[in-house]
Design a protein around this nucleic acid. Structure first.
Lengths: 192, 192
DNA sequence: AAGAGACGTTAACAAATGATAAGAAAATGG
DNA sequence: CCATTTTCTTATCATTTGTTAACGTCTCTT
């Protein structure tokens, strides 16, 4: 039932049966319909989700416009990490792009796991390091490369599924440009 | 002697005397003269530094040009985090901007601390979370705001010391623009 | 003290991007 | 199946940014 999650976790740190039983009773399943929210700007995010099927985006609101800056697919955690950690209201909203199936548990439970088990703590470190490395790479891309180069890098990365499954105007946000500008870049790229 | 480091570490997680004694024997002091390197592109970074006095930058090389994307001041860790974690050659170089005094220890020792002590592991998680939160905030700034807004945000942030202590052409890199462009932005801002 | 190099500003032009609008194509929902 | 909405493209124009170069100031070195 929850094996998919356990396997994913063990990619970061091995989890004994005893460890697993700290978390397992607190897991639940949830389906969020298309356009439904998992987390909402202004509210404290107190849950961690694990996408087993579907896709989501997270976005910030600026001048009344939604700016999408991240996507989630099956086999990944989804949460407003900063809001969870700090306990403060989140600055972003997380929305299902398609009907999405999740395994959900409270962040408070994970925190308890951290305290009670070194293995869980190690998992927490590993996932935070993994997250930081991803953010560093993406930020470097934004600082060093122009929009066209960033598009090409996305094309040749292991994130190509973004291009295959996400509407283009949201990808434009993700790349830090307008949908019109992305359309121009694609047009230029096609002519070569 | 190394109390400054211990205090900083305890801002993330309390460290018992026994814990501290795992690390303390492996600490050393180092002074890197202005323009000297702490870590070099293409080499695996195996050390963590803690700046007690001075300032550093890290930069990527692109098309033969150095692109500075981060600064370090007293009371902060400095390392090529990604290279340390992965054990692969680094993509960036870290250079002293002024004569810089560091406390240094091998990453391998920290890794041992992680394994042997839950408290150290918790420290590792906390610092990675702190790093990730900072990166998330900075990346969001790059995606949501234009260069002039980013400059103003830097002015009004707790990172204002960057503006006071770092040459302007390096700040331009940090903001993701050219030195000429930053000069224009400052000119416009001054006229208001 | 002189010279070289680093740093910041300004100007002129080119290139890229943003803003807006119109229309075509595709997807969605009764 | 049709109507509506969403998505993408294309065009035009304004704005911003990049590029290059010139110039002045300052620092550092010899």
């Amino acid at each position: 039932m929850f094996q998919q999650l356990k396997q994913y976790i063990e990619r970061f740190s091995p989890i004994s049966q005893a460890d697993w039983e700290m978390l397992e009773p607190h897991l639940s399943q949830r389906v969020i319909p298309k356009n439904g929210l998992f987390s909402k700007e202004g509210k404290v995010c107190r849950e961690i989700g694990f996408v087993t099927d579907g896709s989501m985006r997270h976005y910030y609101t600026k001048d009344g416009e939604e700016k999408t800056t991240y996507f989630y697919f099956e086999n990944s955690f989804v949460t407003d990490y900063i809001s969870c950690i700090t306990g403060k209201p989140g600055a972003l909203s997380i929305e299902a792009l398609t009907d999405t199936r999740l395994i959900v548990f409270p962040y408070a439970v994970l925190k308890q796991c951290y305290e009670q088990s070194h293995s869980w703590e190690k998992f927490g470190r590993s996932i935070a390091e993994y997250l930081a490395a991803g953010l560093e790479e993406r930020m470097t891309g934004l600082l060093l490369y122009d929009a066209e180069e960033r598009y090409r890098q996305l094309l040749n990365s292991n994130k190509r599924k973004i291009l295959e499954r996400i509407p283009q105007h949201l990808i434009a946000n993700y790349l830090g440009i307008t949908p019109v500008s992305l359309s121009r870049i694609r047009n230029r790229a096609a002519k070569k």
